[in-house]
Amino acid sequence: MSIVGEIIISALLLVGAGFMLVGSLGLARLADPLQRLHGPTKATTVGIGAILMASMLYQFVGHDKISFHEFLIALFLFITAPISAHLLAKAYLHMNRTDRE
């Protein structure tokens, strides 16, 4: 495997893992439940995207295989992340409204 490929794959892996760590840190650290939604929906989605890209490149460069499974996983997660976040926010607001009444 060429050294350039190795550097790119390693960088993508580290960036992705860093973003996922930041997303989980946001989940643990932020103060308000609605603020906590921001961390995982953005940072974790980008993180998993970077890691999946690294895996795709790894198979392409190292094993001469073009794999689309990673692409499908990334696509699925990018489509579903906003929907989950939207429903979670809605559920939170709904429960708070019933608490106040």
């Binding site: 989980s24 974790t44 997660l77 989950s84 979670l88």
Partner: peptide, 9 residues
């Protein structure tokens, strides 16, 4: 939900 994404990674 976040834990599942982490375990996928």
């Amino acid at each position: 939900d976040t834990m599942v994404i982490n375990s996928i990674a």
